[in-house]
Amino acid sequence: MYRPRPIHQWPEGERPRERLLAHGVAVLSDAELIGVLLGHGTAGCDAVATGRVLLTQAGSLGRLLADPDHLPRVNGVGPAKRARIIAALELARRSLGEGLAELPRIESPAESAAYFRARLRHLPHEVFAVLFLDTRHRVLAYEELFRGTIDGASVYPREVVRACLRHHASAVILAHNHPSGVAEPSRADRDITRVLVEALGLMDIRVLDHLVIGHGDPVSMADLGLL
């Protein structure tokens, strides 16, 4: 009967950690990278195989990244390994925000669209997020203000105004995801955008765009003439 060998018994040129150090991270698959984080697996299931199980149960690497607090329960991944993976995924999430914060300013709609897509596309629930900008469109902060179910999120204009005042924002870019993958703005999306434009306008805060994030390219309400 065939029994899988633990990774330390693999030929050195096939071991994920040794390949990573010799050739760089690009040569490793997602499962192999998770295997390096795990360190070792269990009897009959090496670390790379365990990584594959994690990815299969999560649905994709993006879903692992989007919601590390709900890491799938997998045999052989106890509290220590779970903490290690959650910490690594959270570092990846934070690096997205750090990269954006280093931008001197938002130069084009494509920059904000790419950022929101990376942050929101894989989430299984709807999230309403805001980029807060100064008068020169430099990034002040990013916040996920409201979370909902797959059916939608309740957005309260008063809370958006408060967040803008807290960050001393002069302009904002709004975004929310459609977990269904269809990025077409709904009637509710159009209505809340109109309400927010009016509410923030009273405070001299401009809404530059409202992006809807689905499986394809983000849809810009500004491009659709809905602002």
Rank of each mutant, 00 (worst) to 15 (best):
R5N: 09
R5H: 08
I7P: 04
H8R: 11
H8W: 11
Q9S: 13
E12K: 11
G13E: 07
G13K: 00
R17P: 01
E18V: 15
L21V: 11
A22W: 08
H23I: 01
H23A: 13
G24S: 02
G24V: 02
V25F: 01
A26I: 05
V27T: 06
L33N: 00
H40P: 03
A43W: 03
G44I: 01
C45L: 13
A47T: 04
R52I: 00
V53P: 02
V53W: 04
L55S: 07
Q57Y: 08
L64C: 09
L64D: 11
A66M: 02
D67I: 10
D67Q: 14
D67W: 06
D69A: 14
H70E: 09
G76P: 07
V77G: 02
P79E: 14
R82H: 00
R84T: 15
A88Y: 10
L89F: 12
E90G: 13
L91N: 11
R93M: 07
S95C: 00
S95W: 00
L96C: 12
L96D: 12
G97H: 00
A101C: 07
A101F: 09
E111G: 09
A113I: 11
A114L: 08
Y115I: 06
F116Y: 13
H122I: 01
H125P: 00
E126M: 11
R136N: 10
V139Q: 06
E143H: 14
E144L: 06
L145E: 06
F146Q: 04
T149M: 01
D151V: 03
D151N: 13
E159I: 02
V160N: 01
V161K: 13
L165Q: 12
R166D: 00
H167I: 09
A169S: 15
S170Q: 15
V172F: 01
L174E: 06
S180N: 10
A183C: 05
E184G: 03
S186P: 09
S186Q: 10
A188M: 12
A188W: 12
R190Y: 05
R190A: 12
D191R: 15
T193L: 12
V195P: 01
L196D: 10
E198G: 08
A199D: 14
A199I: 07
G201L: 05
D204Y: 14
R206W: 05
R206D: 12
L208C: 12
D209P: 05
D209E: 05
H210E: 10
L211A: 06
L211F: 13
D217H: 10
V219H: 04
S220C: 07
